[in-house]
Nucleic acid binder design. Structure first.
Length: 919
RNA sequence: GCGGGGGUGGCUGAGCCUGGCCAAAAGCGGCGGACUUAAGAUCCGCUCCUGUAGAGGUUCGAGGGUUCGAAUCCCUUCCCCCGCACCA
């Protein structure tokens, strides 16, 4: 067969060979062109743009594959929305504060600021080389005073609203480094400093807290409405907040000179009659009194208690606690499984109905009393007798059931017993407990936002720095073992804003999660000098429509951002209360099933891939490899194959463009084949568009790549190709790929468009219109299935019948009356289908054939499904006939029933044409 | 333990919400063919079993159930991954 010939090679592809196209030249060219034309700029006056955001990175200095995947997802989606005609806001910035910069500065004898900005410059360059289309005019770096001033402003606002306070807290403290360590920086069982290997201590320090717990209920309840978020993240946030409804009971603890009321929290007030002991945490205030007086308790607390261990350990104190529900006197233990930060640090022990209490009772010999029985089938508390108590000597019964051995409450269901006991008991009250703690934001580090507070040497205490004096800027970095801010004597010395007397600056800086809890608002108006964000524009532009980032931020960053957004809504009148409408937690890029990590040494450098194959290949490979939220394995073979695909595409376009002026050949294009290609183009658009909307790029790209394959086949085997159809097909394919392979798309789009409109300045593919089609996906898929099934049937016949070399293949569409009959059968619910069919005269006229087909339909009654109408089947198969011809090298005829022999027609059914092969 | 997500053909992995067109997409691997001096690349097929005209049989962790019909819905059970957890 004739091939589309290539008379000359255009300049850009001079180097193109089997190895591929010149990606370096193409990518550089378009990156410059985009920058020159500011195509990614989002003007301030656009109306409600689609806000697409990737979690901003810590500027480590090197882009890794995780970044590339994250930002390719947002970039592809942003580009897609842009082509659909949306205004798009797609900014980028830097989470630029943090300890690594401090450590790097010490190692390299520089300072965190210079080091960080170097890293930012490098990474910005790498992002540009990936072709990410950001509005760099909106770039932010949290380590600039312009930005962190507003962290300080935010702190002030929290303080003014009574939601920031300073209090003592236990922290990890490395005496050698003289700094606080985050939990993640404490290593090993014996808790050593990650930097100097010194043993870490717990220390009580004055720390600043933001009262996120004030928002616990709203943060929890609103999770239900975040239906654009993955369930996993929503569940993790629910767990983290950990709201529990229960009862607060007041126990009178006495003996040995102690006589106090102690509160205990329980979710199972219905088991109060089964309480046989009372337990205090090793660091409970009463325990601390006892430690001084009682050697056994002291020894237990200091030597035996092992809160990390699995065994419940405890020591009897000789005190008794009065059960407020029953009046019973319970022995009081100090036990290591009681945690001071859970509930109230004291609990009533119910061994009959709690596994851990049961284990403790076995160990200490306290009584085990059953007070809840499993609810009998059909139990009615009003009329039925109280069930027998279960045997709990071996194991606790922990489910809800029916109260037994519980005085007046016996017979009540657990839930009712809880309510009644809570209502009847003096000092008892329903309360809600949370696992969520207030957000400790103090860090004893240099490279962060200074907390805008001074400590007055006289009597003013801790005083906020007035708004007019913000920002409190960081002093020069001092290379020291402790907190450099502590060593900055000049900086520390200041005056009290209230009394004007001498004062010392707060040397704590803020957790960097403060920076990231509102950065998405700063992009709205990044240069605004007198407010963190422009309120009107923020109301218009927020929330973020599509947020993309790693699952590791499921709780911290995403919860803090929700908290701060809600706070700003209440305190500043921001109209949005949830910052991120849709959230995508992208999967990991792995190598041999393992997370890429430096320590394992299995890191693939994006830079190398870009150098070798180009950014487009890297992007396309990643996006087609898997759904964005799934992990996938990096595969060099896959990358190469993606590269070859792009090379083939460029070659196809180039061949078309070169032949474009002289497509006149002797023969006319076959309209049937052109129609097939046209249909495939429409189908590809219909499918890919839906999938881009869902961010399932892998499916969309499969469609785009499939279309390219179809076009190649068309050019290769059905020459001459119809230039109009081919042009449309190529243009569509290029645009369907453009969000993911922007550079090569520009190059090819230019080739195609310039060719079509000589002399006109080519528009950017970035700004091109997304292709449209009237095709309905369902219909298109039905058509594809028909074609594929028919080809498959031909193959089977040839194979099974052992036909060596078919000389002709006839495909015959079923007669119209069968389509009618099928339609009637699907719609009908009559018992006697045949009778119903025979009411149609044109079916009845078919006699035995109609009866036979009617019986077939009757037999498969429930399984019948719609097919394409007969005319459409005819057209679809005619258009696809070339595929069969090409495969079997035999002429294929597609005919209507009326034009075919009766004995062949008989086998034809809607959706399944008769096939007659002549050997 | 609690909560969430899974177990599909040689492998990876879609389908399951909305049961029938599902022996089950796609990719990889394997086999055959075309092209090539050859290799590579590319292209066309095949890849559970049986079958000389598009057929039949046995499959979607295991067991049961619902249904005319189940990879898909329900129940039980086993296993894997993730998050939380001596949480009162």
């Amino acid at each position: 067969m004739e091939r589309y010939t290539t008379p000359t090679t255009p300049p850009v592809y001079k180097q193109m060979s089997q190895e591929g196209y010149d990606h370096t030249a193409v990518e550089k060219r378009w990156q410059e062109a985009w920058a020159d034309a500011s195509v990614y700029r989002t003007p301030d006056d656009v109306d409600d743009p689609t806000y697409v955001l990737g979690m901003y990175p810590y500027p480590s200095g090197k882009l890794h594959m995780g970044h590339v995947r994250n930002y390719t997802i947002t970039d592809a989606y942003a580009r897609y929305r842009r082509m659909r005609g949306d205004d798009v806001l797609h900014p980028m910035g830097w989470d630029a504060f943090g300890l690594p910069a401090e450590n790097a500065a010490k190692e390299r004898d520089t300072n965190p600021r210079d080091w960080t900005f170097d890293c930012i410059d490098t990474m910005r360059g790498q992002m540009r080389s990936m072709g990410f289309g950001y509005d760099w005019d909106r770039e932010i770096a949290t380590c600039t005073p312009d930005y962190y001033e507003w962290n300080q402003w935010l702190f002030r606002r929290f303080h003014e609203e009574g939601l920031a306070e300073q209090r003592d807290a236990e922290v990890n403290w490395c005496p050698d480094c003289e700094t606080v360590l985050a939990d993640e920086q404490v290593e090993g069982e014996d808790e050593r400093c990650w930097r100097c290997d010194h043993l870490v201590e717990q220390r009580e320090l004055e720390q600043w807290f933001l009262s996120i717990t004030e928002y616990a209920d709203e943060l929890l309840d609103c999770i239900d409405d975040l239906d654009g978020w993955p369930d996993s993240v929503r569940q993790m946030q629910r767990n983290w907040i950990g709201r529990q409804e229960g009862t607060r009971l007041t126990f009178a603890v006495s003996g040995d000179g102690v006589d106090e009321s102690v509160e205990a929290f329980t979710t199972r007030a219905d088991t109060a009659f089964g309480a046989t002991f009372f337990a205090l945490a090793p660091d409970h205030p009463i325990t601390e009194e006892l430690v001084a007086a009682d050697d056994d308790v002291r020894e237990f607390v200091e030597e035996v208690a092992d809160p990390e261990g699995d065994e419940p350990n405890g020591v009897a104190t000789g005190l008794t606690a009065t059960n407020p529900v029953t009046g019973a006197e319970l022995p009081v233990f100090v036990a290591d499984f009681v945690l001071s930060d859970v509930g109230t640090g004291a609990l009533m022990g119910v061994p009959g109905h709690d596994d851990r209490d049961h284990a403790f009772a076995e160990k200490t010999g306290v009584d085990v009393v059953p007070v809840v029985a499993p609810e009998p089938e059909g139990y009615d508390p009003e009329t039925d007798a109280v069930p027998d108590a279960p045997d709990v000597s071996e194991a606790a019964f922990t489910d809800d059931g029916v109260a037994v051995n519980s005085g007046d409450y016996s017979g009540l269901r657990s839930a009712d017993a809880r309510a009644a006991i809570t209502a009847d008991t003096d000092g008892a009250a329903l309360t809600t407990q949370y696992r969520l703690r207030d957000w400790g934001i103090s860090r004893q580090r240099y490279w962060g936002t200074p907390i805008p507070v001074v400590h007055c040497h006289d009597d003013c205490g801790s005083v906020l720095v007035p708004e007019a004096d913000l920002p409190v800027e960081l002093p020069e970095f001092i290379n020291t073992t402790g907190n450099p801010l502590d060593a900055a004597e000049e900086w520390k010395a200041t005056t009290c804003p209230e009394c004007g007397g001498p004062a010392t600056r707060e040397t704590d800086t803020m957790d960097t999660f403060v920076d990231s809890s509102w950065y998405f608002l700063r992009y709205v108006s990044p240069d605004l000098a007198d407010a963190p964000f422009d309120p009107d524009r923020a109301d218009d532009w927020m929330p973020v429509d599509q947020y993309v980032g790693g699952i590791e931020h499921a709780v911290m960053h995403l919860l803090y951002s929700r908290f701060v957004t809600k706070f700003l809504a209440d305190a500043e009148g921001l109209t949005t209360r949830e910052p991120f409408t849709n959230l995508l937690a992208q999967g990991m890029v792995q190598l041999d099933g393992e997370k890429m990590s430096k320590s394992v040494g299995n890191v693939v450098s994006p830079q190398r891939i870009v150098d070798e194959y180009g950014a487009d290949t890297a992007r396309l490979f990643m996006m087609q490899a898997a759904q964005p939220e799934r992990d996938f394995d990096w595969s060099e073979e896959g990358v190469r194959s993606t590269y070859r695909f792009i090379t083939r595409l460029t070659r196809l376009v180039e061949e078309y463009a070169n032949a474009g002026g002289s497509t006149v050949t002797d023969a006319d294009p076959d309209p049937a084949v052109a129609a097939y290609v046209d249909d495939e183009i429409d189908a590809a658009v219909a499918v890919a568009t839906e999938e881009y909307d869902d961010l399932t790029f892998n499916v969309a790209l499969r469609e785009a790549q499939g279309l390219v394959g179809t076009l190649r086949n068309y050019v290769d085997y059905a020459a001459p190709a119809d230039p109009a159809v081919l042009n449309r097909g190529l243009s569509v394919a290029v645009r369907l790929l453009a969000p993911v392979t922007p550079h090569v798309a520009e190059e090819l789009y230019e080739t195609l468009e310039t060719d079509a409109e000589p002399g006109e300045t080519p528009a950017f593919a970035v700004d091109a219109d997304w292709p449209t089609s009237d095709a309905d996906r369902g219909t298109a898929e039905m058509r594809r299935r028909l074609v594929e099934n028919t080809r498959e049937d031909v193959r089977q016949i040839v194979d099974v019948a052992g036909i060596e070399d078919p000389s002709a293949i006839d495909v015959v569409i079923a007669p119209d009356w069968k389509y009618d009959a099928l339609e009637i059968a699907i719609a009908s619910d009559a018992d006697n289908l045949i009778g119903e069919l025979m009411q149609e005269s044109h079916i009845r006229e078919e006699g035995d054939a109609a009866a036979a087909y009617g019986q077939d339909l009757q037999a498969e009654r429930e399984a019948l499904s719609e097919t394409l109408p007969g005319d459409d089947e005819y057209e679809a198969l005619r258009a696809a006939a070339w595929l069969i011809e090409r495969e079997f090298d035999a002429p294929v005829s597609v005919t209507r029933a009326a034009d075919a022999a009766d004995d062949v027609v008989r086998k034809a059914e809607p959706g399944r044409p008769a096939i007659d092969i002549t050997e």
